[in-house]
């Protein structure tokens, strides 16, 4: 297969756009191709990518999880409130609490047959409120526990902890999709739910697991943000994160119709969005304009990988 066909083929469309953008930026954007800037991009990318990985699985079941941003805020709020009892309890409670919200989402979707967009829209709205209730009616709660702050600011063998967490999450997501039953069940339930049920696939349990995982990953991202800020801001953390995550997944090539998923694609999609944001920022393009440019690039990437029609 020649290079041109690879570049134009649907699977590699987002990657091709990414490569082109990185090349152009390296040539024309001052200070783009520097080590510190690349680390900066990865650091910014980490929380979005972690959320987008969960979203990949949700979308592969044919659903969507709009509540991830609010769940990030809830995770951060729980951790901040419980920090005086020790970092382990605080972080553990944040992750478990978030996962329970995911279980709630998944149960309503699977058992009550309410549409995912409606259920998670409700948790998006209610979750934001809950996060503010937890943090004493929306107070900004500073966190000074040194061990906790390491989650957002520390590094391990020169790799920042958030990037490390994103790498681990990516590896786990790939493993789950390729080597575990849950990966098969997700694709089967999303591809043909009737056939899956008739083949004994536990469709409900699969949905609950997937939404719980999405919420768990959102909480991880929320903790990273709180640790980076040194505070839990219940009104701000994770705002619009659901949209960035969905954009990354869709640009990466996972179909909204369900039944297909690509973790590598999501990584590429998230990277693409981050590179655009960073480079436009470096080129001093006003934020309002950068949104418009982002929109065009999303549409182009999705257009390039639209399913072939006879």
């Amino acid at each position: 297969m020649n290079l041109r066909r690879v570049a134009l083929s649907r699977e590699y469309a987002a990657l091709a756009v990414l490569v082109v953008l990185v090349l152009l930026n390296s040539l024309f954007t001052p200070h783009f191709a520097t080590v510190s800037n690349l680390w900066n991009i990865l650091l910014q990318l980490a929380p979005v990518l972690i959320v987008a990985l969960g979203m990949t699985f949700v979308i592969a079941t044919g659903g969507v999880d709009l509540s991830v941003g609010s769940v990030m805020a809830i995770g951060a709020a729980i951790a901040a409130v419980l920090m005086e009892r020790g970092v382990v309890i605080a972080v553990g409670a944040a992750l478990v609490g978030a996962a329970l919200i995911g279980v709630l989402n998944g149960s309503m979707i699977a058992s009550l047959r309410v549409q995912p967009i409606v259920v998670t829209l409700a948790t998006l709205i209610g979750g934001r409120g809950l996060a503010q209730i937890i943090s004493n009616n929306g107070e900004l709660m500073t966190v000074s526990n040194a061990a906790f702050l390491e989650i957002g600011r520390g590094s391990f063998a020169a790799v920042p902890v958030p990037v490390l967490l994103a790498l681990v999450a990516t590896a786990l997501a790939m493993f789950a999709l390729r080597a575990m039953t849950i990966g098969r069940y997700v694709l089967a339930a999303g591809g043909n739910a009737r056939a899956a049920r008739l083949s004994g696939v536990p469709v409900r349990r699969t949905l609950v697991t997937v939404y719980a995982a999405s919420a768990f990953l959102a909480a991880v991202a929320g903790l990273i943000m709180a640790a980076r800020l040194g505070a839990s801001d219940a009104a701000k953390i994770g705002q619009n994160m659901e949209l960035d995550a969905i954009a990354a997944v869709v640009v990466g090539g996972t179909a909204l119709s369900g039944g297909r998923a690509t973790v590598a694609g999501t990584v590429v999609g998230a990277l693409l969005m981050q590179v655009i944001a960073t480079s436009l920022n470096m080129l001093l393009v006003p934020y309002a304009w950068s949104l418009a440019i982002k929109a065009v690039i999303i549409l182009v990437a999705v257009f390039l990988q639209r399913p072939a029609r006879a």
Binding site: L187, A188, G190, G191, N192, R194, A195, L198, R260
Partner: peptide, 13 residues
């Protein structure tokens, strides 16, 4: 088509 195959998956899966 409606009750049998999972369209996006391989023969193996």
């Amino acid at each position: 088509k409606a009750d049998g195959i999972i369209p996006e998956l391989s023969v193996r899966e």
